[in-house]
């Protein structure tokens, strides 16, 4: 618990670099004391709580390109790191091609908070509860990162190391996330169970994406990602493989849900018990898969 939350933000220096290179250099040379931030919706809260005590907050949201939302019918969607969630939700291209991404964003907090919150910020926090991470995983998001040695790309699949821990190195700034054009005929869904109807963090969240795939024995490929059931956003690969190899029936959906539950290692916390989370991982996985399957047909 946070007993001694500050009344307001503790002291720090606000740094606004002019270029990406400048930002990376500053972050690299102030290894411990500097932190990049976009909307600040997470970092400010944790600073008030005393969990983070950066001396410098490096505002990267106005750097060139970070506010671009770009869609190309062949290459896919590139979201600048600073593109806020409300812009993602409102984008006609996202609505048309990546509705799952919009659905996940809509489940985050409230409209005013989403004016500031970003998908890249959500990913970089690396909370196992991150609501948009499942969509980014199942849509094969690729992070564009600028480090001291220049730009590189990293797949979402290998990005998370633990709660709050990622493969990002000192001086790294994530500049964008890119999504390829989703598979033809794909259907996605994010089922989020919070304590309230909307706006809460997830007790359990299940992202499911399915599409016809002739390479699979079942004729369909399903992708799954679970929130708040493991130290990192969880991809239950066994469940995915099972559905690729078995024809899709209520029984196989249940078996996949069971496999996805087996992959979970939830904890007891203020939001829910491990026992309940296991149950919900199963029920919501089954429900999400069944709903996606229904829409595929």
């Amino acid at each position: 618990m946070t007993m001694n939350t500050h009344p307001s933000l503790p002291e720090f220096e606000y740094v606004q670099p002019a270029t990406l290179a400048e930002a990376c250099e500053f972050l690299a040379s102030h290894a411990v004391e500097a932190r990049p931030f976009l909307g600040g919706t997470d970092v400010f809260v944790r600073m008030r709580d005393g969990f983070l005590t950066p001396q410098f907050l490096v505002d990267v949201k106005n750097l060139k390109g970070l506010n671009d939302l770009h869609f190309d019918p062949k290459a896919g969607l590139t979201l600048g790191a600073a593109v806020n969630m409300n812009r993602v939700i409102a984008s006609p291209e996202v609505k048309a091609y990546y509705p799952l991404l919009a659905e996940a964003c809509r489940s985050v907090a409230s409209y005013p908070l989403r004016t500031r919150a970003t998908i890249v910020g959500n990913i970089c926090n690396a909370s196992p509860a991150g609501d948009t991470i499942g969509a980014c995983l199942t849509l094969d998001g690729v992070l564009h990162i600028h480090g001291i040695n220049g730009p590189r790309q990293e797949s979402m699949a290998s990005f998370f190391l633990g709660p709050g821990k990622t493969t990002l190195k000192l001086g790294d700034v994530v500049t964008a996330i890119h999504f390829p054009i989703p598979p033809k005929g794909c259907v996605g869904m994010y089922l989020k169970l919070g304590r309230n109807q909307l706006s809460d963090l997830s007790i359990v969240g299940v992202t499911a994406l399915g599409y016809p795939d002739s390479n699979c024995k079942s004729g369909y490929r399903f992708r799954l990602a679970l929130a708040s059931v493991a130290p990192v956003p969880l991809v239950p690969t066994q469940a995915e493989t099972y559905l690729a190899n078995h024809s899709i029936t209520p029984e196989s959906v249940h078996e996949a849900a069971r496999l996805s539950t087996d992959a979970c290692s939830p904890i007891d916390d203020v939001r829910g018990s491990a026992r309940y989370r296991k149950q919900m991982a199963r029920n919501l996985s089954a429900k999400a898969l069944a709903e996606v399957w229904k829409k595929l047909n």
Partner: peptide, 16 residues
């Protein structure tokens, strides 16, 4: 409203 969009003003730095 910040540039026309609602924000929680406790979560925005004045300098921004």
């Amino acid at each position: 409203l910040l540039n026309g969009e609602p924000v929680n003003s406790c979560m925005v730095l004045a300098v921004e």
